[in-house]
Simulated scan of single mutants.
Amino acid sequence: MKTKLTAAALVAAALSLSALVPVAAAERMVLAPAPAIDAPLAKGPLAKAVFAGGCFWGVEAVFERVKGVKSAVSGYAGGAKATAIYEITGTGMTGHAEAVEVTYDPAVVSYGTLLRIFFSVAHDPTQLNRQGPDSGSQYRSALFTRDAEQERIARAYVAQLEKAGTWKPKIVTTFEGPKPFYAGEGYHQNYLRAHPTQPYIVYNDIPKVEGFRRLFPQLWSEKPAA
């Protein structure tokens, strides 16, 4: 008789499998220092932040496991609404980057902490217009800050990382301001949880999730954001 596995069981199995294969994504993980400049935790309305760091599947999968994150949505930022389509963005000619919009509770997790996670495990900020096996400007490292406060914190943190020599060679992350974010197609959402045993996911993205759980246990949420 066949046993029907739950999505959680499949993800757990894939996490175990990832430890048995060579993992390029894990090789560049670094526990970046906490930001010296950050917004204090404070009660208030939910906030949004947009990160681009290569294929949005893995970036989304990391952020949806962060305590205080309410949602992580894969999509596009940097270009026009008319070209916010996967196949068109894939040409690298739209100005878009694959990006993830994170909605979070500022009383639980700060923007600076999200930046720390982004630079530590979600992507490699030294790769110009690429991440791992994916190349093109649509896979660039970019921050789409939503307001002046996020911009201030983000620029200060990158300067802090560069001064500390956390990443070598140079960080190539771009600051692209509050450009609109457009949610991606439905089949891209929660992609890792829907396809935990797909080879691309096992090799490139599950190691990021496992790296986050290992390096930031205090921030790990057993239940992913909706």
Rank of each mutant, 00 (worst) to 15 (best):
E210L: 11
F181T: 07
E210Y: 04
A183K: 14
A183G: 13
T197D: 02
Q198K: 10
W167Y: 15
E185V: 11
P178I: 13
V209I: 04
P199C: 05
W167V: 15
H188V: 08
T173Y: 11
K170H: 11
P178A: 05
P207N: 01
P199N: 02
F181L: 08
G177N: 07
T174V: 13
A194D: 09
R193M: 09
V172F: 09
N204Q: 10
A183N: 08
K168M: 14
A194W: 07
Y191G: 01
V172Q: 08
A183P: 15
E185R: 14
L192K: 03
E185T: 12
Q189A: 04
T173M: 12
F175Q: 07
E176L: 15
H188M: 07
N190Y: 12
Q189K: 07
A194N: 09
P178N: 03
T166G: 06
Q198W: 03
G177I: 12
G211C: 03
K168G: 12
Q198E: 06
H188N: 06
N190T: 03
Y200F: 04
G165W: 08
H195T: 03
V202L: 03
K163I: 08
A164T: 08
K168F: 12
I171Y: 11
G184T: 04
K208A: 03
I171L: 15
E185W: 13
